[in-house]
Design a protein around this nucleic acid. Structure first.
Lengths: 111, 111
DNA sequence: AGAGACTTGTAGATTGTCGACATGAAGTCA
DNA sequence: TGACTTCATGTCGACAATCTACAAGTCTCT
């Protein structure tokens, strides 16, 4: 049974950046936000989420800081950097262009 | 500079199956069709296309047969099998659900 | 004390695309 | 005849990203 693993590829960065564009959030919270807002369509596992966050930070698109979560637990909070804001715009465009392309193919006469 | 490599991942099968749903076509023709119909948004390289076709055939979703192209050249023609038709429907649904999820996240209030 | 939810993280396996390369036939043009 | 372009199929190694499974620790509630 095929999951969404392959579809997620190339979209996760965009999604995470978008979530963080509204304010700081810790990793677990990002995953929850994605699940909730997509109405359970987008489920991101820890094995994807944390490496993704580290990758984004390595690229300089997000910055992290330790703090306390609402539940009073130690958590690492991430926020968007100026470069991350630009990257978010880039990736949003890329996504829109790409889906437009797929839609053109899928809606066009087959054959 | 990021290409569409990662976005293509998980969509290529769907796109190829869709193209073939309208009748048989050879590999090169599939790539051309994708490029043309997407108005140059979807460019599939040979290194992705041929392995994908072999994969789909291995799964039993498409069948192949050697023949002659319009240009009088030796070419392998692929057509959708009944299982491929079902798979196309599955993957189309999967794609629609996924993009719906992404759109929910992207259009919702950030933060 | 124990259970369960919250929180971060890593390692190995798997998968899929890319770029580069190799091969060859058909048609065009000088 | 020879050179070049387009059409057409294919493989190989590098690389990137996700998944599953595991490890570990904290806070709250019973």
């Amino acid at each position: 049974m095929k999951s969404n693993a392959d579809l997620l590829q190339g979209t996760l960065d965009l999604l995470v950046l978008h979530i963080l564009s509204g304010g700081q959030q810790h990793g677990w919270g990002v995953a929850q936000a994605l699940k909730d807002r997509s109405q359970d369509r987008l489920i991101v596992t820890q094995g994807s989420l944390y490496p993704a966050l580290h990758r984004l930070e390595r690229e300089g698109w997000i910055k992290s800081e330790w703090g306390l979560s609402d539940n009073n637990r130690r958590a690492k909070f991430y926020r968007l950097s100026p470069a991350g804001k630009r990257q978010l715009e880039l990736e949003t465009d890329r996504w829109r262009r790409y889906t437009a392309g797929v839609d053109l193919v899928l809606s066009g006469a087959p054959g």
